[in-house]
Each structure stands twice: as structure tokens, then as C-alpha cells.
Design a protein around this nucleic acid. Sequence first.
DNA 1: GCTGGCACTCGCACGGACGGAGTGCCAGCC
DNA 2: GGCTGGCACTCCGTCCGTGCGAGTGCCAGC
Lengths: 340, 340
Amino acid sequence: MAHDERRLEVLRAIVQDFVSTNDPVGSKALAERHDLGVSPATIRNDMAVLEEQGYITQPHTSAGRVPTDKGYRLFVDRLSAVKPLSGAERRAIERFLDGAVDLHDVLGRTVRLLAQLTRQVAVVQYPTLSRSAVRHLEVVQVAASRLLVVLITDTGRVEQRVVDSPVEVDAGAVADLRTLLNQAFAGIKLAEAGDKVPDLLETAPQHLRGLVATVSTTLVETLVEPSEDRLVIGGTANLARGSALDFPGTMRPILEALEEQVVVLRLMSEVDASTVLVRIGEENDHEALTGASLVTVGYGSADRSLGGLGVVGPTRMDYPGNMAAVRAVARYVGHLLAES
Amino acid sequence: MAHDERRLEVLRAIVQDFVSTNDPVGSKALAERHDLGVSPATIRNDMAVLEEQGYITQPHTSAGRVPTDKGYRLFVDRLSAVKPLSGAERRAIERFLDGAVDLHDVLGRTVRLLAQLTRQVAVVQYPTLSRSAVRHLEVVQVAASRLLVVLITDTGRVEQRVVDSPVEVDAGAVADLRTLLNQAFAGIKLAEAGDKVPDLLETAPQHLRGLVATVSTTLVETLVEPSEDRLVIGGTANLARGSALDFPGTMRPILEALEEQVVVLRLMSEVDASTVLVRIGEENDHEALTGASLVTVGYGSADRSLGGLGVVGPTRMDYPGNMAAVRAVARYVGHLLAES
DNA sequence: GCTGGCACTCGCACGGACGGAGTGCCAGCC
DNA sequence: GGCTGGCACTCCGTCCGTGCGAGTGCCAGC
């Protein structure tokens, strides 16, 4: 069994060296840079086995070895210790995020912070609407038969919809509508808001029914759609850093996938706040991302995940470091949003 | 003078050919592809003059000529006819933008549309806050001494601020505060909101003064800052399209400048709705953008510019096409926002 | 089961040769 | 005076052959 253990040690060394140098790593360099206690020849044997098992591969005969996706996976699952953040990094997180004036600002700072800490592309999801609850609904009249309805959630999101009323409305009707909507929906999770509509319609006074029906169905329909979930993306310049080195093809499909927010949103839908989720290369369903890795986690309080955040980078990334950064930032953002 | 005219014609041909092929263009190819009515030898003479005047240059001896920034400038100013959009493009604009549910959606669609039409990076600015007027202010209590103030502008922007009150407030105070704020600020341009604060404080009942002061100064201070103006950016994948071909250095500084929204916002501050503004290469103050060109224009109604939008791309871009697209989109967005 | 040695493979960098595209200039022509 | 065809020249990009170095696999020995 000592064999197996050393072999894993060799794999770890290969991953670490390759991540830091971006050169295929050979047996000699490995023996020099790591205290494996054996000679290059022995390492070569181990490498041959690792290659046969599919954990590493050589770009061409007589080049060093490079980890495969499977190799990275093993590394992440069994070989990487959680790397604690440095004090400076912790302080940076606080300094960066404190003083944000609103949700937009918090998430904007978060994405910049993450991009800076990890030197990767960072992605932050707005708190999911369907899991948010209504804090307040505001109705503003913008024209005789046109209303602007503003939804404020308990997570700080503010959404607006313009609704055309079937009939002209006056100030009194607007006030009544506001009261009715708030009575019906305040404190209710958006995912469950639809269930309240029948009740609401019943209690509404006759002359307001049409208006209430229009407004409430518009709200429920357009706000619960997952496409309404939003993303903030930052640090795309980091993609261009190693460009040719990191992404053998081009980085274009990745940029496209990021702009196609739906793709990333689907990935985000799987996160939860307790574990950092790592997807490596081919593990990604989406074709454009098969050359990339994602490190994601949910943020929010213990009992309630608000949304996800994470980073996207080459498979050749510093997994322990990125996992630590993503987790730390998510925790801090979770606290921040729980407070407000 | 016939000389001069033909020389300009040669410059136009060079720009057009170079934009479409990305190869330095030689005298022979020019004579073949354009009806200039003279032989390559003559064209060579003209090219020598154009080069001496600084409109074109050769990457190296015995390569074709390439337009300089100055050459593009002349082309844009005197040689390019406004290229009308095709019917399909016009229809695309309408199809793409109609059906947007709110401001966020309108601008998101706009940026995607522009990126698609021009195949460049597109940038759209949110309606400037300082030029917007207050439509409504809403106050929601989130804790004993913490209020959420929501500002709705006549351009459809919704901004929120959390304000910590110096004293605990009750529901009545919140309602009074709401009324006071709306009385004071409704219809007022944000840029002038600061002037109203003293009046407001005077008319406020004694027991609300502290609260009103805190809230109104927070609003005025944080909302009038130009940094509060926002940008939507899209089509960054287009940067990667020609990458090495279009941007000799890397595209990284450009991505960085785009993320550094302040840079672009400053550029946007100069636009107005009547003329399309083109900045070519070195004409850009910002160093990272000296290899790029910007085509921008303001959007809004005739009497009032709300914000700017435009595209960023290599100096080697289709200026007439991009100018036409940018202008058409800006017009349509202007109408759309004027309605709501 | 580990190690040192050795032959082998292969990619890459270097350098010279070649071809092609394009130019500038000049003499002649309209 | 201006345009044109011809010509010599320049220089880039490509291709090919060589040498070098890194790295491997295998084998015999400890």
C-alpha cells in the first residue's frame, strides 16, 4: 500500500507543479522539487501507472506529464487540503465589502473582489427571486391607465413592472390596490405568491377586481420565471491573461457562454451553501465549458440559500486557493445580506 | 484638382479593402477591385503621397498599405456615406426590443442587439441619474431604526438606499416622511434636488427634522455622484473573434478598461443625441483604448439626452455600418423610453 | 522493489534558401 | 504635365534540414 500512497503523492506533486508553471512536468524535475524520497526512475514507473489509470497524460511522446480532468478530480477530492486564507485576504474581504450602499453595490463589489482574489472570472447571482419573500409592494401611477409596480424583497432586490390597466384608475384606486397587494403578499415567498391570488381576488372589492387581477397575474407570471434571475460577471480580463496557454482553442466560446446567462444560471441552481461545488472540464455539460473548471458555492444564512457565486477558469487552476476564496467570500456576503 | 479627388478615392478604396480583408492592400489589388480608371503605377504614386501626408503607412517595406488613425478620420469625416440599414435590420431592432418588461430588460436587449448588429462590443449607459427627475420616493421600514428608501425616476430607473435613522421610528413617522419627501422632490431633477433640502427641513415638523435631514442628505449625496451611473456591456466575445489580428497587443487592457466602468462613463458623458461621435485609436485619451475605436451617440428624446450607447472595436472597423446601427438603435430606444 | 544507465523519440529553436508581393524609379507615350 | 509599362530591388513568410535537450521506457544490478 505504500506504493499507492506514494503514487498519489506523485500525482499531487504533478498537479501542483503544473498549475504553477504551466509546463508538462517530468520525472527529474519532480524529484528535484519535491521530497518524494525516491529516484526519478521510480517516479517514472509511478507515472506510467498513473497514466495507465487515466490520471495524467503526455501531450506528446517525450514531453512531461499533464493532469487529466480525472487527475484533477482525484486531486480535489482526496489530495487537496483546504488552504486557509491569509490574514491580509480576510481583511481585504471586509474592507472591500463594507460600505456598500445597496444590493447592487454589494454584488458588484463581491464580483470584483472574487475576481481579484482568484485572478479568475467571477460570477455572482442575484438572490433568487423565487426564494425571496415580499417585503413591500409599491404602486405608482405613470399614466391614466398605466401603473408602475415596484417589488421590494427581503433580500434587497427591487424589481419593477409596468402594467397596463384595463380601465382608467384614480388616486384612490391606486392606494387601495397598494393596500390590497401588501396585505395579500407581504411576507410571502414569491414561489408561493401564485397561490394567494384566488384569495386576493375574492376579498377585493368588486370595482377593483379587474385591476387587481391584471396586476397580480402580471407580477406572478413575470417574476417567478427563473430567467428573471440575474448575474453579475467580472474579471473577464483574467481570461485574456494566459489566453493561448490556458485555453487551447479560443476563449471565445467561454465568453459566449458567460453572456448567455442562462447557461451559468443553470449551473448555479445546483449549489448550496454548505459545500463548495467543483466542476472540472468535461464534467460540465455545456460544451463551451468543457475546457474550463467552475468553483461554485451558495451564499446565504445557514437555513436559507439566497443564490450562488463562484469563479470560472482553466482546468489548470489553483483549486484549493479558489475554493477557499469562494467559500470565504460567500460566507461574508451571506452575513452581510442577512443583516440588512 | 482631379488629382486630389482621385487620391481620396484611393484612400477610400484602401480603407474599404483593408476593413474587409485585414490584409495590407497593394496597388495591384486596388486597381483590380476598384474602378479607379488608372494603372497600378499611378496608384502607387498616389499612395506615396498619401503616405507622406500621413493617411496610410506600410507595416514594412514591400508590404501593402494600411490606413493610419488619421486616414480613418478622413474617411469617416469626408468619405463615408451614411449606410442605411437594411429592412431586415430595422425589423430586427423592433422585434428585439419590443416586449421588454422593464428598464433593465430594455437595456439588456439593447446591448445584445447592438453587439449582434455590429459584431463588436456594445455598451449602453443607464439613463443618467442627474438628468432624471424624481417620479416617486418610497420609504419602507426594515428595522426599528433602519429604513429602505426607494427612488423611482421618470426614466424608469429604480434605486434604493438603506438609511440608518438616528432615532427609532414608528409607522406614522414613516408615512409622514414619505409624504414630505414626495412633496419636496417629486418632479424635481436629481441634479437640483440638493437645493430643495433647506426648504424641506424648514417645513418639516420639529420631531421629524433629524430623520428627514439624515434621509435627504443620504439621498442627495449618494445619488448625484456620477459613479452611480451604470453601464451594461455585451458582446465581449466579439473581441476574441479576430483577437490577434485586430489587436496587436492583447485584448486584455481593453477588457480591463471596460470593467473599469468609470473610463467608459467619462467617454459617454460627451455624447449628445444629435450626432454620432467617433473616436479613433489615438484620439482616445485612455491609454488602453488607443488601439481601439469607439462609436457613440446619445439616446433620448429630441430635447433631452438620457444617456449614451455605442460600440467599441478595432480601429479597423466598418465605420459607416456601425454608425448607422448605433444611431438607429439609439433612436428606437429613445422612443421606447419616452413612452413609458 | 528501487536505482542508475542507456538508447531512443520527438518537439522546438535556429538558420539558410526560396518565392512572392509590393514598391520606387525611370523612360516613353499621349 | 500626367499617365503607363517595365524593371530592379527589398523584404517578409514559409519551408526544410539540423542539432539540441528534455523526457521516456526498459533493463540489469543491487
